Simulated scan of single mutants.
Amino acid sequence: MTDTDPDTDTATATVLSESVTGLGPFFAFRIHPLGTEPDGPWQPMSRPLLEARVAAVGARLAAAGGRPPGSVEPRVAASVAHLGLAARLISPALAAAVLHDRVLAPGLTELRWQPVIGGPIPLSLPDSAVADSPAGSPEHLADELSTRLLDGPLRELSDMMGKFSVSRHIVWGNTASALNGAATMIAAARPELAARTRSLTSLLLARPPLRGTATMAGGGTFRRRSCCLIYRAAPDRSGPLCGDCVLAR
């Protein structure tokens, strides 16, 4: 965003937010001016809150499987928590790119969230998260998203997951899976944008840090090259696999 008219920057970002949010709750976000705090129970993406999030996800997974608290491996809970957070960052960003050719890349320390369990995580982004000009060609748009989003807040989030012994192979597989999930939802909501969405998704998957994290099988079926580990949350560690899992046959 430019620094000449903060009110205009906030208004422009708010219009973008309203357009993207129209795709559904997994794309929804609100805008707050950089340097201010949004009203309500919003929290920064701090390490203590992330640790609490992982613990809460682990407890929820254990309860769903009829297991006692603390029985789910921390790295399993951390991977599942990461997948949800990555999806909430990448979904509105992909939508902003597809709908408006805009790059949406918030700094991880500047965004605010509400760590609810179950359903889409409420998200508030600073107005500075919106690029000050359209990104240009699809290739340039993919380059900008790779640099500013994937190598920005999503890499920061990836680094934070190292504490829980979640490998980078899994973390970036989670991110690729979140990207594909967002593309699928956009195509379902706006079929006329399906080709554009899939094209941009393919460009992002071909660039680092997502290069090599997934394959597109016959008929365009997405298959990641890692596992989010959620099957290990089942009582016998043999729960169902996700549809895009490398272990699925």
Rank of each mutant, 00 (worst) to 15 (best):
V103R: 09
R53N: 07
G66F: 13
L61E: 01
V76G: 01
T197E: 06
A248R: 15
F26H: 14
L34V: 12
T21L: 05
A105C: 09
L157M: 03
R224G: 03
A13M: 09
R168L: 09
D143F: 08
P74N: 08
D3Q: 13
G40K: 13
R88Q: 15
D236T: 14
S226D: 07
L94R: 00
G107L: 14
A131L: 05
A96T: 11
R232F: 08
T221W: 11
M45T: 07
S165Y: 14
A13L: 09
H100W: 12
F222H: 09
T175D: 02
M1N: 12
A78C: 05
A77N: 11
G22E: 06
I186V: 08
P240D: 03
R223D: 00
R211E: 14
L210G: 03
T197L: 08
F222K: 08
R148A: 02
T14D: 09
W42Q: 02
R102A: 15
L204W: 12
G220F: 11
D159C: 06
A217F: 06
L99E: 11
L193R: 12
F27C: 00
L200W: 02
E51N: 14
G212K: 12
A142W: 03
R168K: 13
R232S: 04
A97E: 10
S238W: 13
T197N: 06
H100V: 13
L204F: 12
R88C: 04
A188K: 15
D101E: 15
L205Q: 02
E18W: 07
A188V: 11
L204M: 08
A86E: 03
P134R: 12
A56C: 04
V15E: 15
L210R: 10
M45F: 14
L123A: 01
S158Y: 12
T2V: 08
N180P: 03
P48K: 07
T213R: 15
M216C: 10
D5Y: 06
P138T: 02
T10K: 05
I186F: 05
A105D: 04
G119N: 06
V54R: 01
G220K: 03
T21Y: 07
S19A: 12
P38M: 01
H169F: 13
L99R: 10
L104E: 02
T213F: 08
P69A: 13
R223V: 15
G162F: 09
C227T: 13
